[in-house]
C-alpha cells in the first residue's frame, strides 16, 4: 500500500512547490500508515531522484518516454494514469500549482475517479475521507468528503509550509516506461517566451496599489514615482484593470497575483474580499482611503483617512527631503 506524490520539474530543475508537496505527502502517508512513493516524469527527471529521496520518498518512479521531451498535460496525465494502474496506490496527491492540478485532473478523468483540488487538511479513513478545501481563492473554506476506491487530491499551493524531512526515504528507483501515442506530442510545450522581469509583483518587497479612487490612468504616475523610490512595484485592483487604466499583470487578488511584500500600500482600494485574499500574506498593510469604514482600512495595520492624491506626493516629498 502506498501514497503516490506527483512531483513537478522544469526541464530537470527542481521547483519549490515540490518541498510543499513532499511535506504534505509525508504527513498524509504517515496518517494513512503507508509507504510514500514519488513520481518524476520526463526529460531531466533522473537528476532529481536524490532530492525526492531526501524529501522522504521510499520509492521513486522514474517515467521516461521519447514523447516526454517537455511538459504536456495529455502526455504527463496519461503517464501518471498508467503508472497508477500499474502500482495501484491507495491515494495520489500533488501541490495545486497550474501543472499539479492539471495533471491530477487528467489522471482523474482518465481513471474515472473523483479529484478534490486545493485541500488544506485531509483526514484519511477506511471509509470516505474528510477534507477542508479552498473555495473562492481562499475567501471561503469547504468541508468535503471524498468517496472513491482510489483517492486523488491536491493540496493548495502555499497552504502547507515546507519542512525538511526528519529522515530521508530509501529512494529506490523504479523505471516506468509508459506506452504513449505519438499523437500526444500535440500538447507538449513547443517553445518558451521568457520575459526578463526583475522584481515581480509577487516578489517585490514593497507593493503600492491603486484602486478606482486613483481616478485615471495618469493618476498612477505618482504611484510609479513612489514605487521607484522604494524599489517596489505598482499593483492595482480589478476595477482599475476593467477600466483599462492598468494591465492585468498588475492586478492583485483572487484572479490576479498573490503578493507577500514587507509592506503593502493600498490607495483608493475598498478591500473587497477577492482583492484581500491576494494581499493578506503581506507582512504589513497601510491603507490610504477617504472612507474610514472601508474594509481595506479596518483590516489594515496602518491607515491614513485622506485623499490619496495629497498623501502619496507628500510621502514622495518626505523621502526626497530625508535623502537630501
Amino acid at each position: 500500500m502506498s501514497l503516490l506524490v506527483v512531483l513537478e520539474h522544469d526541464r530537470g530543475k527542481w521547483v519549490e512547490a515540490n518541498d510543499e508537496a513532499l511535506t504534505a505527502a509525508r504527513k498524509l502517508a504517515s496518517d494513512m500508515g503507508v509507504e510514500l512513493h514519488a513520481a518524476l516524469v520526463g526529460v531531466g527527471a533522473r537528476d532529481l531522484v536524490s532530492q525526492a529521496a531526501t524529501g522522504g520518498a521510499a520509492v521513486v518512479h522514474l517515467c521516461e518516454h521519447e514523447v516526454l521531451t517537455d511538459y504536456g498535460p495529455d502526455a504527463v496525465g496519461e503517464t501518471v494514469a498508467q503508472l497508477v494502474a500499474s502500482i495501484n496506490p491507495s491515494a495520489i496527491t500533488a501541490v495545486g500549482t497550474s501543472r499539479g492540478n492539471e495533471v491530477l485532473a487528467q489522471l482523474a478523468a482518465r481513471a474515472d475517479l473523483p479529484f478534490v483540488a486545493n485541500c488544506m487538511t485531509v483526514a484519511p479513513s477506511d471509509g470516505p475521507w474528510s477534507m477542508t478545501r479552498v473555495q473562492w481563492g481562499g475567501s471561503l473554506l469547504e468541508d468535503a468528503t471524498l468517496d472513491a476506491p482510489t483517492k486523488v487530491l491536491s493540496f493548495g499551493h502555499h497552504s502547507v509550509v515546507a519542512e525538511v524531512a526528519d529522515a530521508p526515504g530509501a529512494g529506490e528507483v523504479r523505471e516506468f516506461a509508459p506506452a504513449l501515442d505519438p499523437a500526444m506530442a500535440a500538447t507538449i510545450v513547443r517553445d518558451r517566451d521568457v520575459q526578463t522581469a526583475g522584481v515581480t509583483l509577487s516578489t517585490a518587497p514593497v507593493v503600492i496599489s491603486g484602486g478606482r479612487g486613483v481616478g485615471s490612468a495618469e493618476g498612477f504616475d505618482q504611484l510609479e514615482e513612489l514605487a521607484e523610490l522604494l524599489g517596489g512595484r505598482v499593483g492595482c485592483s480589478r476595477a482599475v484593470t476593467n477600466l483599462g487604466w492598468r494591465n492585468h499583470t498588475d492586478q492583485v487578488g483572487q484572479t490576479g497575483t498573490r503578493i507577500a511584500p514587507e509592506i503593502y500600500i493600498a490607495t483608493g482600494i475598498s478591500g473587497a474580499i477577492q482583492h484581500w485574499v491576494g494581499a493578506m500574506a503581506s507582512k504589513r498593510i497601510l491603507a490610504i482611503n477617504t472612507d474610514a469604514e472601508a474594509n481595506m482600512v479596518t483590516k489594515a495595520d496602518y491607515a491614513v483617512i485622506a485623499d490619496l492624491h495629497k498623501v502619496v506626493p507628500a510621502i514622495t516629498a518626505e523621502i526626497r527631503r530625508r535623502q537630501g
Binding site: 478534490v116 468541508d143 468535503a144 471524498l146 468517496d147
Partner: peptide
Amino acid sequence: GQALIRLHR
C-alpha cells in the same frame, strides 16, 4: 465521489 458538507469562513 466528491460531496460538499459545509461552507465556512
